[in-house]
């Protein structure tokens, strides 16, 4: 019995160690490759034909704009849809049908969303290869995940609180606005942070809708053409010259740090909100 117990523990620890070691190796190689290129000139420069002159500023700015626009588009719609399904939807059958479809949508490959975005936003709505078209496409991509995690968060609010509020003479909307939403916000934020983080690393849908890889200016509005960090990295990786590989490594590091920083801000905001409710 004792040996079995110990064997099981060793097995579990090695399961944890394997991915950690691989991750450490990858990160180590990445930092070694990226380090020489991580200069101020790289962070504030524009793309160039010569690898050593190339910078990544348009990618950083483009990605930040994309994040903000994606959140602005996806969060209200996603939370609204989840509220309808959880709090207002009376017709069980319909809600179930929608639920199955949303779960399926979450599993659709991102490139399909890219094609949809190309057809609907870029061509049909005439938005062109713009920031707003890219953000709308990413918003579609994260919408199912936001809806599902919001519903999950809403379900953790005990019914006894809804009953208490209804018993005091609150309308459905007042119950949602004053009681349910404040309780569910931390959960909603956690789900949305994860969803949006994934979207920011997405390359395929942006390639499909035609984000540019070589722009020497910063986008001046939502309808401007744009590039984004993953697009820039993708472009550098596909160049034959070795010097561009170092640029790609540096770009990946920038993308990772950007993501981690954004997540940290979001988590900080969430914790603060949670505490103010206690």
């Amino acid at each position: 019995m004792q040996t079995r117990e110990r064997l099981f523990r060793i097995l579990c620890v090695s399961c944890l160690a394997l991915p950690l070691l691989m991750l450490a190796y990858l990160l180590g190689r990445l930092v070694v490759d990226a380090w020489p290129r991580l200069t101020m000139a790289f962070l504030t420069g524009f793309p160039s034909r010569r690898a050593e002159d190339a910078g990544i500023l348009p990618g950083i700015v483009g990605s930040l704009y994309l994040i903000l626009l994606t959140i602005a588009l996806a969060l209200p719609v996603g939370v609204g849809a989840a509220l309808y399904l959880e709090e207002f939807g009376q017709r069980r059958r319909l809600a179930q049908l929608i639920e199955v479809n949303i779960a399926n949508l979450a599993g659709v490959p991102s490139i399909i969303y890219g094609l949809l975005g190309l057809e609907v936003f870029v061509r049909f709505m005439g938005l062109g290869r713009s920031l707003i078209a890219g953000a709308a496409t990413l918003a579609l991509l994260v919408l199912p995940v936001i809806i599902m995690s919001t519903r999950e968060a809403l379900r953790t609010v005990p019914d006894s609180l809804r009953e208490a509020a209804v018993g005091l003479g609150a309308t459905r909307w007042q119950v949602v606005r004053r009681i349910v939403l404040p309780q569910a916000v931390p959960g909603i934020m956690t789900g949305s942070i994860l969803a949006v983080s994934r979207a920011i690393g997405e390359t395929a849908p942006l390639v499909v809708i035609g984000a540019l890889t070589f722009i020497t200016f910063l986008p001046d509005g939502p309808t401007a053409p744009f590039t984004a960090l993953p697009i820039q990295i993708f472009n550098w990786v596909s160049r034959p010259q070795a010097a561009f590989a170092a640029n790609a490594a540096a770009g990946i590091l920038v993308l990772m740090v950007t993501l981690l920083a954004l997540n940290a801000v979001a988590i900080y905001l969430r914790e603060r909100m949670q505490r103010s409710h206690r």
Binding site: S160, L161, L168, G169, V175
Partner: peptide, 28 residues
């Protein structure tokens, strides 16, 4: 017609004072 429930269910995000005022706040 007010109602008091089986399990005490004060609103967890609110202070004692806000709990008492909850009905008035909720309903405007």
């Amino acid at each position: 017609v007010g109602m008091v429930f089986q399990k005490p269910n004060p609103f967890p995000t609110m202070s004692i004072r806000d709990n008492v005022l909850a009905g008035l706040r909720l309903t405007g």
